[in-house]
Design a protein around this nucleic acid. Structure first.
Lengths: 288, 288
DNA sequence: CTGTCACCATACCTGCCGGGTATCACAGGG
DNA sequence: CCCTGTGATACCCGGCAGGTATGGTGACAG
């Protein structure tokens, strides 16, 4: 099998993804730690090899063609797969952890009770592997699994997507609004999403998405602590799963939301994983 | 972000996968169209970069270490992802099929009626894309989807695995035994798996798996036509889904199996696909 | 209209590294 | 003991990735 023209080198993918994300050759080159001309040339060669134009170099800037959008998406996935391959291989070869160690990705402060029970129950299993808990930010579990930093993760639909993973459902829970205890709404026995979506003095906080904050007038937050403090200060409110009550402050009040979609916690792992430790952990989890 | 040591080049993955599959540097080099010494060196560099030993070079041969097995598996997946990226990008950029064309992978002769209905129903949709039907062998749909040769496929559990794809269930059916019409068993109104698993004069046919036939005394077959003929000749029997009756010959008899697991046909596509044509096709399929 | 700026493309050079050939080291088998 | 098969080593060479300098061009100010 002669390697046809359709062999993308990882280097090319890295370069293209950088340019496609920055939409600016200069900045992309800087991010890649190289000069701009070789980068331009590499992208041109890539376009010629694929026989497809990936970028529109217009006046004042660069934009993605349709094919470019496809390659950005598919290329990211392919890159993640290669770094996952490297990471998992290195882990498998590390002398200290031959095979009996699992990295579990969990959103910090998410489903704390469930996690506690899971770890306890699994530790009691005969031949249990060591579980390293890798705490991460808002929706980062997907990335952890995809690039091999984690072997298994607890994910929460509808926030996380389970596409591309194997998973088992563990728990479903309602959502509550966390409000400043002193706020009038906090006295209500229940609320609807409409009640909390446009409260003038409690604008919804904004989380960074891929490094940039969406527009809006709510406060910008980066972690749960900041959010908790802003709620305590009466500046914002949050809609969170029921189990998030575990990190409530004294100045917070939780009011059930009647019409919020339920949050379902899953245990998820890369499709086709076949390690015994992982299978044991999943079995333990589903039996909780 | 300086590209760390964990950057595997596609070339390295190709090389390693070839060696890991051949377990022989010379043959692997030949398959790769290169000489053996550079290949040896490349693998050594790879091992040094990863800080992990991948192969055991013993007297008379090469074998995979644990880490090597991991890299073989993960590396294959990563390679498939890159060639899928190339293929899909090129298809997206091809001038004649901007976006309104889908390649549907189907096992030849599998679920023929369902496929017919699906194609008819979808063609009647407004704005329907052109559907190219890509027929494939026994369990090859997974590979088609993974490496980008197909956009969507009809898969049959428990033969295919849906892990790593998004999918919707379309149909469940029982299984029947296809027997030579003249065979005594063909006269029975129903059979169990035990009845057909060890018939002395009708040994089960063997299908090639990754190019090699499993051991056994049944005849070796490569496609459904061969199988059909062997059954007609009274040399073997087959356990197949109910819908396979559509390719029965005059000399065949079909007898329902009472305890065979049902075969479920799904429509499956790469996780996260977002094309409108695909979404329409899936919706049409689930409404059949 | 024109100078300037921002930005990508082109031209050209250089050093590295991937790949080739020749050969070695070593284990088994007769 | 030699012969064979197999992977590793030594060494050379050419291509290509990456650098610097510079060109081309649209946007914008005045």
């Amino acid at each position: 099998m002669v390697t046809g023209v359709d062999t993308l080198e990882t280097r090319e993918l890295r370069y293209f993804v950088a340019v496609a994300e920055e939409l600016h050759f200069g900045r992309a080159a800087e991010r890649l730690g190289m000069a701009q001309p070789p980068l331009s040339r590499a992208i041109q060669q890539l376009e010629r090899r694929l026989g497809v134009s990936l970028l529109d170099r217009n006046r004042r800037g660069v934009s993605l063609t349709g094919a470019g959008q496809v390659l950005l998406y598919e290329g990211r996935a392919a890159l993640e797969a290669t770094v996952a391959a490297a990471r998992r291989t290195r882990r498998a070869g590390a002398a200290d952890s031959p095979r009996d160690r699992l990295v579990l990705g969990v959103k910090a402060a998410g489903a704390h009770e469930l996690l506690q029970k899971l770890l306890d129950a699994y530790a009691a299993e005969p031949g249990a592997a060591e579980i390293e808990v890798l705490l991460c930010g808002f929706c980062e579990q997907e990335g952890l699994l995809r690039d091999g930093r984690a072997d298994v993760a607890l994910m929460h639909t509808p926030f996380n997507s389970l596409a591309g993973f194997d998973s088992e459902e563990l728990m479903a829970e309602g959502q509550v609004a966390i409000l400043p205890a002193a706020h009038p709404l906090a006295a209500r026995p229940a609320l609807s999403l409409a009640d909390v979506s446009d409260v003038p003095d409690l604008p919804l906080a904004r989380w960074p998405n891929r490094g940039v904050y969406p527009p809006g007038n709510g406060p910008e937050v980066r972690d749960q602590t900041q959010l908790a403090q802003l709620i305590a200060l009466g500046r914002t409110l949050a809609v969170v799963p029921d189990s998030a009550r575990s990190w409530m402050w004294a100045d917070h009040a939780a009011v059930p939301l009647t019409d919020a979609p339920p949050v379902v916690t899953h245990i998820a792992w890369p499709a086709h994983s076949r390690s015994r430790a992982l299978a044991d952990l999943v079995r333990t989890a589903t039996r909780l």
